[in-house]
Amino acid sequence: MDKTTFLLAFVIGGVGLVTLATVLLGWGRRVPLSGLQEAQDRLAIDLPDATVTGGIVADDGLAALLDLDDGRVAAVACLGDRRWTRILTGAGGPRIRGVQVSDEGLRIPLRDPGAPILRVALADADTRAHWAARLEA
């Protein structure tokens, strides 16, 4: 086995071993939001001047949509055991590419190369329709 092949095998084996270890330790599970308050607290870190007036946490806890007092809608979403936030509507041009509604909830493609898709699981049809309308307004 030449040096390059050995190194390649070591890299691939090492990546597999470390990744497997994280799975075995239970660190592969998504950690959903504990509730609306956590979503608000997380948004306050990124947007300390924003005031949340209402919102909803997705049925699976993996995202939340938040109404701000200036009329904008913000999102807090889960990425593994961490969260990311984005403003979805308001000043600065369109930030979403439309809203796709299905029985499971909302699928929101974003104009953002670092966060291309936001999924919000909402089983209730009225709730889905309300938020789809808010986002497309």
Partner: peptide, 21 residues
């Protein structure tokens, strides 16, 4: 992390998102 956290684990997006931006 970064001020505007990523919403993806996709390596291509991680590598190129700021260039696209």
């Amino acid at each position: 992390g970064i001020v505007k956290s990523l919403g993806t684990f996709n390596p291509l997006r991680i590598a190129l998102h700021e260039w696209v931006g």
